[in-house]
């Protein structure tokens, strides 16, 4: 459905995407994760024909068509849907939802009756209350606007739907609702979805996740596979320690099988180590022997959030060690 090979994007001297490659199959939900400036939006802009060919190289295919050719743009845009981060950019607030639908469906050449039927179907799936269908969009709640925006993105039954930060600006409690709606739509319509997001919870509904940093694709796999690639298949020990400080963490780090310690609170750390089951009792013993007061301890499987944190940290450490090598060579 979407094929990206060796994508490089440059704006003048600025190289914003480096050699990115990935393939997405029909019906998959892909999460593009990364901190700001990672290149997530730029990649999506290439896929949605928003960046001129002079700025990028590589082989890109969207629904079997290359955005390289301008003549393909109209067809690609007919095959894709887009839900921007801000509803203000997607909806005419002065008009009602049904008229908004009409405005967008007319651009795809859909007839009024079909558009209305599709809209009603989508509105029902997305629980957009019937009494708001004929009211101005500006009178709808934030969540309703978000869902309407999603409905408009899907109104022409696109093969691929791009969603830019769909959970940003939504209450914590509503975030999961949005994600479950997306999953529901994906299952019902079998639409391939690209979610650009900072919200790591979105990985819950993603079939595959892409982690980007500074325009480089660090990982592209299922979140389970990525977590399993951690030492001891992602098993994590969580300790609450009295008077925890950096010196103490550095001391614990000296324990031989420890691979990584992450500070997760004022007095809490999470520990990743080799041969978890075998080494955990030894670690506790090591800490007790050295007068470290453990207030509580639990073990769990790492979340995607933790994986992401570890992976980015690792990348940063590698980058800084590379810089050090360069300085020494000089």
């Amino acid at each position: 459905m979407v094929d990206v090979n060796n994508l490089n994007v440059k704006f003048g001297e600025k190289h914003v995407v480096h050699d990115v490659s990935f393939t997405v199959d029909k019906g998959e939900i892909i999460g593009l994760f990364g901190i700001s400036g990672a290149g997530k939006t730029t990649i999506v802009r290439v896929l949605t024909c928003q960046i001129e060919k002079k700025h990028w190289t590589g082989n890109v295919m969207v629904t079997g068509l290359s955005p390289e050719k301008k003549s393909n743009h109209s067809k690609i845009l007919s095959n894709i849907g887009y839900v921007p981060q801000l509803e203000l950019l997607n909806l005419y607030f002065e008009l009602d939802p049904m008229v908004n639908v009409e405005v967008f469906t007319s651009t795809y050449g859909m007839n009024k009756k079909r558009a209305k039927e599709t809209a009603e179907e989508l509105f029902k799936i997305l629980d957009i209350p019937r009494d708001t269908w004929k009211k101005r969009v500006e009178k709808m709640s934030g969540g309703e606007k978000k869902r309407l925006s999603m409905a408009i993105g899907l109104i022409h039954n696109p093969d691929v739907l791009f969603l830019d930060e769909p959970t940003t600006g939504v209450d914590a409690s509503k975030r999961y609702d949005i994600l479950s709606y997306l999953k529901k739509l994906n299952q019902k319509l079998n639409t391939t979805m690209f979610i650009i997001t900072h919200d790591l919870e979105s990985a819950l509904i993603c079939d595959k996740v892409a982690i980007l940093k500074d325009g480089r694709l660090l990982e592209f796999d299922t979140s389970q596979n990525l977590i399993s690639s951690l030492p001891s298949e992602g098993l994590i020990a969580r300790f609450t320690i009295e008077d925890l400080n950096e010196k103490l963490i550095a001391f614990i780090k000296k324990f031989p099988s420890i691979r990584r310690i992450i500070r997760v609170g004022n007095e809490a750390i999470e520990v990743l180590m080799e041969n978890f089951e075998e080494n955990l009792p030894k670690l506790i013993e090591y800490m007790v022997d050295n007068n470290i007061t453990i207030t509580s301890m639990s073990k769990d499987i790492a979340t995607f959030r933790r994986y992401f944190q570890i992976r980015i940290q690792k990348e940063e450490e590698e980058e800084s060690s590379l810089k050090e090598v360069k300085v020494i060579r000089k």
């Binding site: 949605t48 928003q50 109209s74 845009l77 007919s78 887009y82 921007p84 203000l88 651009t107 795809y108």
Partner: peptide
């Protein structure tokens, strides 16, 4: 007209 940007991601 803010949604022009979004309209341009349709065949119009």
């Amino acid at each position: 007209e803010k949604p022009i940007a979004r309209l341009l991601l349709t065949p119009v």
